[in-house]
Design a protein around this nucleic acid. Structure first.
Lengths: 247, 247
DNA sequence: CGGTGTGTTCCACGATGCGGTACGGGTGCC
DNA sequence: GGCACCCGTACCGCATCGTGGAACACACCG
């Protein structure tokens, strides 16, 4: 029920993750014959899971691990984890919920759950949207290094609707608001007729991974529940997702 | 010269990195018999390289990949990459060069190359030092999210020597300087008799990974070469290291 | 209720991975 | 300079271990 060589290869990679090492040292760490380790390392090198330094004596983790780890933080894995939280938000608010990730100077909407209601907002999955016009973007900017924020604000900022805020000073104020409250609203700033709330998904260390949001038609959202309560629902889901990802 | 099962297991993991999938789907992606894929997946699951979702139908990347990726960005791999750059800086300046990573509110000196000169600064490898007293720390703070910087500056800031700058306003000015010039000097602010320059190692996206620095005895450093030239040497090495890591 | 999709289990076969052993080259200690 | 030591590489006979076809159980859908 277990493929020995694969299990051993993984142990070897884990050993090298501790710190780079030569062949013999690695063999000692995983307690296997040198020849066995040599063969496995050769295979791992072929698939670029490990690589050797210039003089070919030291093995270290290879590009394939880099690719994996970016994929692990990437959209596909993230959405798999986030799904339950989106479902929950939709259940609690009755509106569409989504998750967005930063992509350069834009937000990338990568997943969305649909509301039951016959009248609902369209599915924005796959869209790239300027940071300053949606709350998910604001939430992301609020956790950027100052340098990056200033660089963004110094550019020409697109005006999507009458309500779009493009004044850098006002945007800075909203960013401060995000940091203080943990969520932010936008009212018909991206397209007319849609309001949204968003909250940040953070790694330990305060670096931002993604943003969760809920949006609905302006005529009914927010309505019976007030803005603060909806904000707290989103912020709460985002906080718990952050925690789940941190493990 | 190649262990088939290991190569196949890696292909499977890479396939799952694209997006989570079930057994049959995975088998199709890597073009292997279902039974073979089932066995390999079972092994990968045992070592936590992959895991299944709640209902056991979908495979996705497991905790082991998370561990690997944090290790890949961790001190051990970083120093392996950085060594050549430290050597180069020491060769060009004649003084000790080092690399530091952020660790909460402190900088962690993780590696250092020694100068040839009989009189040299001691090896600080392994030390944890408050952010605001060494240039490597300042360089790191300069790339923090604003929220985190303000939180740090609102605490009591230790005074290590007569020259240590503890006024939050002056520190903010220096952080702006780092962003503008790409490097920063400190003169006997951590311990008396030592001066240092540092520059940031950045990921794409502006997130900070580490800082490079060169330090030497105050009586001769900086001397024949001027401050700007030394600054550029460090900033240049840091920029090239950033690029090398980004691949 | 067949058809088609899952995932799981079984088993005979032999290719394939295993590891002891031997070799060549670099390093350092006496 | 020579010896001892540890490194990485290469060889090769043995039998273990992984392989993959086939049959099975289950769920879903028309």
């Amino acid at each position: 029920m277990a493929v020995e060589s694969v299990a051993r290869a993984v142990r070897i990679v884990e050993a090298l993750a501790q710190s780079p090492a030569g062949l013999s040292e690695t063999a000692r760490r995983v307690d296997l014959p040198k020849s066995t380790v040599a063969r496995l390392l050769a295979t791992l090198e072929e698939v670029e899971a490990v690589e050797r330094d210039e003089d070919g004596r030291m093995y270290r983790l290879g590009p394939m691990v880099q690719r994996l780890s970016s994929a692990a933080g990437g959209p596909a894995q993230l959405t798999a984890f986030a799904r339950p939280y989106l479902d929950e938000m939709t259940a609690r608010t009755g509106e569409a919920a989504g998750i967005a990730i930063p992509d350069g100077y834009q937000v990338h909407y990568v997943d969305q759950t649909e509301a039951e209601h016959p009248v609902q907002v369209r599915d924005w999955t796959g869209e790239l949207i300027p940071m300053h016009v949606v709350p998910s973007g604001l939430v992301i900017m609020a956790h950027w290094p100052e340098l990056q924020t200033e660089r963004y604000l110094s550019r020409r900022l697109a005006k999507m609707t009458q309500n779009t805020v493009t004044d850098p000073r006002l945007i800075r104020e909203r960013l401060a608001e995000v940091r203080a409250r943990g969520y932010v609203w936008a009212f018909e700033e991206f397209v007319e007729g849609i309001n949204s709330v968003a909250a940040p998904v953070l790694e330990k260390g305060g670096h931002i991974t993604a943003a969760l949001h809920v949006h609905g038609p302006a005529y009914r959202f927010p309505d019976d529940q007030d803005q603060d309560e909806l904000g707290r629902i989103v912020a709460d889901a985002a906080r718990r997702l952050s925690k789940a990802l941190a493990r």
